[in-house]
């Protein structure tokens, strides 16, 4: 077991700790615990980042140096990282433990799945020629930043339907944060699709090949475009917006997991 696996393991434990701290907070309601939650989250992302950097460095030692964004395991780990990153970016806008709890639970799930599932290859793998491009970084980063913004949007959309006084933030707040995260996610997804298209033009000879992943990312893009139009043009709020954000996230999940497992295509590196 390499050092980066251990560090990522520690990060996973910290995400678990974040979850327990939330439970503690909800039962005791002490402001100190709330600060501890954030301190742990900062610690987690620090170790998590170090883990990614060590993996990166080790890949050079193995003579196949590449940024750890290239296979399914690495994408899961980076997905978890970007969810936490998004929490920290939006920290001022989301001082609500219910949201941080659900989002860090998502990170915990992703990390746990990545490190436990027998179907995930955790070794550093060589970079196949198609992935040897500088577009890899920008494409993967923009896509996962978008995905993680949609995680927050989904959390808000789902919490909207949960009635739990003192735990779930007010509905208006949820609606507002939902919108804000889509405002980050949508341009990022657009950038992800466009950088992917430019890359595809150089690697596959066509900027759009209707590959299942491409098609589903377009479907996701259309759903979030509808979200924005419904809100900004039709003036939809709260319940219906929450519903669209849930549908949108289902589409994100299918684009990420579903397409990898069910449909074959040009993006099949990630399985």
């Amino acid at each position: 077991m390499s050092i980066h696996h251990k560090m990522l393991g520690v990060a996973t434990m910290l995400y678990l700790l974040v979850f327990f701290l939330h439970i503690l907070y909800f039962s005791l309601k002490k402001e100190k615990i709330h600060s501890a939650i954030w301190a742990t989250l900062y610690g987690a992302i620090f170790i998590h980042t170090l883990g990614l950097v060590f993996r990166w460095v080790e890949s050079y030692g193995l003579d196949m140096g590449h940024v750890p964004l290239a296979n399914y395991y690495e994408s899961l780990i980076f997905f978890a990282w970007s969810v936490t990153f998004m929490l920290i970016v939006m920290r001022k806008k989301i001082p609500y433990p219910a949201i941080t709890m659900c989002a860090s639970l998502a990170s915990l799930f992703l990390m746990g799945y990545a490190s436990i599932s027998p179907s995930v290859d955790r070794n550093i793998q060589p970079l196949i020629p198609a992935l040897q491009s500088n577009w890899l970084h920008i494409h993967v980063i923009t896509c996962f930043v978008a995905y993680s913004a949609f995680v927050i949007s989904f959390v808000c959309g789902s919490l909207y339907f949960v009635e739990w006084k003192g735990v779930v933030p007010p509905k208006k707040v949820l609606d507002d944060i939902n919108y804000r995260s889509v405002v980050i996610g949508f341009p990022m997804l657009s950038a992800g699709i466009l950088t992917g298209a430019v890359w595809a033009h150089y690697a596959w000879g066509s900027y759009w090949s209707w590959d299942p992943k491409e098609t589903w990312s377009l479907i996701t893009w259309i759903i979030y475009a509808l979200f924005l139009h419904a809100r900004l043009v039709r003036g939809w709020r709260e319940k219906r917006i929450a519903l669209i954000s849930i549908i949108g996230f289902m589409s994100v999940m299918f684009t990420y997991f579903g397409v990898n497992f069910i449909l074959s295509g040009l993006h099949s590196y990630a399985t």
């Binding site: 003579d63 196949m64 793998q125 060589p126 196949i128 020629p129 040897q132």
Partner: peptide, 10 residues
């Protein structure tokens, strides 16, 4: 090829 047998560059 890489030592693992996967193509590195063509």
């Amino acid at each position: 090829f890489y030592p693992t047998g996967e193509p590195k560059d063509f």
